[in-house]
Amino acid sequence: MRDGLNEQLSALVDGELREDEAALLLRQLGRSEELKARFARYCLISDALHRNLSVATGSDLAARVARALEDEPSYGVGQHRPARGRLLLRPVAGMALAVTGALAMVTMWPQPSQETASTRAENEGVIAAAQETPQQSHQRPIEAVDAPERAAPSVAVETAARSQLQWKRLDPQLQRQLTDYLIKHSERSATGQMDTALPYMRIIGYEAGQ
C-alpha cells in the first residue's frame, strides 16, 4: 500500500500521473503532513537527479522546501475549493509553482520552466523516462561533492528508492532495451573495472531482475 503511494508520489513529481489519480493524491496531500513532507523530498530528489544538485545537501533543505509548501495557501486544509473542472489542473500547477519557487529560493539558482515528460511524450510520441528537458542547461552551477558524513541518510535512501520506482514505471519494452545496453556495456567494460567479477555479477543481477 505504502509502496503504491510512494509510486504515485514519484509519478506526480515526474508529471506522469493520470489526472484523476493526481487530483485524488493532491487531496490526500492536503490532509497529511507526512505525505506533504515526503512529496517535498521527492521534488528535491528529482531536482537533484536532474540537475545534479547534490542530495547530500541534507534534510535541512528538504525541511525548508516542506515548510515552503506548508506556507503555500493552495494546500491549506479548509481552503475554498474551486470548481470541479479546475480541481484537476490548478493544484498540479500550484504545487509545481510552489516547489519551483522554493527550490529557486533555497538554491539561489534561476529555474527555467520545465516541460513534463508526459507532455513531451504526447507531443513527440516518445517513451519518456523522466522529467527532463533539453533546454535545461548542464552548465548550471553544480555543488561540490559533500563528504559522506554530511549526507542525510533519509534523503539518500529515498533517492535510491525513487530510482527504483522510476525504473519500474518505464515501458517494459524500453526496460528490455535498456537492460540490453546495460549488459553490453558491462560485458565490454568488464576488464576495466578493477578486473574483478563485479561486472559479471551486475549482468546476472540485471538479467534476473528483468
Partner: peptide, 19 residues
C-alpha cells in the same frame, strides 16, 4: 519505434537517452 528520452538509473548504472 521506441525512442528513449530522459534518464534512468538501475543499481549502479545511469542511463541517458536523447534523439
Amino acid at each position: 519505434k521506441h525512442p528513449f528520452s530522459g534518464w534512468s538509473r538501475r543499481g549502479a548504472v545511469s542511463t541517458f537517452g536523447r534523439t
